[in-house]
Amino acid sequence: MYEILLVLYLLISLALIGLVLIQHGKGAGMGASFGAGASNTVFGSAGSGNFLTRTTAILAAVFFVISLVLGAMTNQKLKPAEDWSNLDQAQAEQVAPVAVQDSAAQNTDVPN
């Protein structure tokens, strides 16, 4: 489920970026007076403003909801214990009393 939501999140984010880049800015009306007004006929006589604005708002809301759901799902996952959290205990367990050996006993293999 998490992976499906993550892929959906990615696709919605790319669609949202594309829709924002397609939309006309506030100054786009000035271009219509110079002959660029025919570009709005693709989306009908009302223009692309309502369609693109609504679609962007819906995708933004879905993007926001999915991000909250993914955050809640990630928060509930168990985190692995860090190696550094129990450093004092691990160090105390590893330190064992070292037996002191006689130096003469250590050098038995070495010929004189």
Rank of each mutant, 00 (worst) to 15 (best):
M1L: 11
Y2I: 07
L5Y: 09
L6W: 04
L8F: 07
L8M: 10
S13K: 07
S13R: 04
L14V: 13
L16K: 03
G18Y: 03
L19A: 00
L19V: 11
L21S: 04
H24N: 03
H24S: 03
G25N: 15
G27D: 13
G29T: 13
G31V: 00
A32W: 09
F34V: 07
A36M: 13
V42M: 05
A46T: 00
G49H: 01
N50R: 10
L52E: 10
A57D: 01
A57E: 09
F63G: 04
F64D: 11
I66E: 12
V69C: 14
V69I: 14
L70K: 09
T74N: 14
T74K: 12
N75T: 08
N75E: 10
Q76I: 07
L78C: 06
L78T: 10
K79S: 14
K79V: 03
P80Q: 02
A81E: 15
E82Y: 02
L87M: 06
L87H: 12
Q91D: 10
A92R: 09
A92C: 07
A96G: 05
Q101M: 06
Q101A: 06
A105M: 07
A105H: 06
T108D: 09
V110R: 15
V110W: 11
V110S: 14
P111A: 05
N112D: 12
